[in-house]
Simulated scan of single mutants.
Amino acid sequence: MIPTQALVYCDQPLFDAYEQQLVQDWLPIEITQLSAGQFYGHYREVGNEAFRVVFEQQNQVVHKRAIIEKDFCTISFERTTQNQVRVSEYNAFENSLFFLPANVEVDIQAEGNAETVYFRFEQSALLESARAMNPRQWEMPVDSVLVFDGVNRQPLELFTDYLYQLSAMSSDDRQPEQQKHLNTSVMEHVLLSLDSSLLFDGQETDVVARRRAAKSVRLAIDYIHAKLDSHICPTIIDICKDVCISQRNLQYHFKKVMGITPNAYLYRLRLNRVRSQLLRPTDINMTVTQIASDWHFWHLGRFSNDYLQLFGELPSATLRRTFN
């Protein structure tokens, strides 16, 4: 049993996808802005060692790559109703709930203005309670993303609204028993919602096709990130060779899963890498030209224009804000 600790509260406006990434410093995650325009978002978090509830919203399309923490799992859903979130090969649908188990790599794409919420628990504690409530549903090992059709998600949504309104948690003076009750109540609401849900088997033709496409896209993106981490800019030919896929299929799979071509993804990812370095330069003497060159942008006029189109400000303005 995890001891009850004081609740912590975070309520932070976001002005960059990189800020959205940094605020979740307890989770290995990279967030890339894909759509063009100035970024605005909001991050709210409440919880302690027993649970954590996170609310995220941003006005731009973002792509998230993360590995769920060891020993912890999350249950998430889209708080808005437009079904604008994809988790791995699964698109959100009305009343969907996503179970993301420990140590699993997930690939999430959220459209602009989508708001998501997720609950984080110690996985062994959650599964112990879930199996006590419904042994048959949870008898299998949980080692991949599960999707549930939340037949009656309304009680969880109403409880989530209550949690969203909690304020001034950093100076919370609740008694230990009250905090313990809140901890229990959070897990109970989540488990009751899961227990009243139907496990989505994902065998529909479109899901199976998207799963195949998502596997190829994940391998390609892993390769792209590995090369960029070594400051090597891969070509489409390099990607096709590494993933063992034709250029036509690679294009088709990216469009099906990401909604953009692999070239567009690679280009925007490089612009995001530049932005993260401009926001956190390793040397006060670093220049925009040096950082752009690090990420293989050689035509500086075109680079500056494309950066402006994607982020709504010139790269020089980003660097200037860093030192102000």
Rank of each mutant, 00 (worst) to 15 (best):
A6D: 05
C10E: 14
Y18M: 09
E19N: 03
Q20M: 14
Q24P: 00
Q24Y: 10
L27N: 09
I29V: 14
I31M: 05
L34I: 11
S35I: 12
Q57I: 06
Q60A: 10
V61S: 01
A66R: 14
I68L: 11
D71A: 08
D71S: 14
C73P: 09
I75H: 00
T81V: 11
N83V: 08
E89P: 05
N91Q: 13
F93G: 03
L97D: 02
L97G: 01
V104F: 08
E105N: 14
V106E: 12
D107K: 04
I108E: 06
G112D: 12
V117D: 02
V117P: 01
Y118I: 06
Y118M: 03
L126E: 05
L127D: 10
E128M: 08
P141R: 08
P141S: 12
D143N: 13
L146W: 04
V147H: 01
F148W: 09
R153C: 13
L158P: 00
T160A: 03
S170T: 03
E177D: 15
Q179I: 11
N183H: 04
S185C: 11
V186T: 02
M187F: 03
L194P: 00
S197G: 01
L198E: 08
L199D: 07
D201Y: 11
Q203M: 14
V208S: 04
R212M: 15
K215G: 10
V217K: 00
V217Y: 02
I221V: 15
D222E: 15
I224D: 02
H225V: 12
K227N: 13
D229F: 12
P234F: 07
P234D: 03
I236R: 08
C244T: 13
Q247T: 15
V257C: 09
P262A: 07
Y265R: 05
R270K: 14
R270D: 05
R270A: 04
R273W: 03
V274Y: 00
Q277S: 11
M286G: 08
T287L: 02
I291R: 01
I291H: 00
W298D: 15
L300K: 07
G301H: 08
L319C: 06
T322K: 12
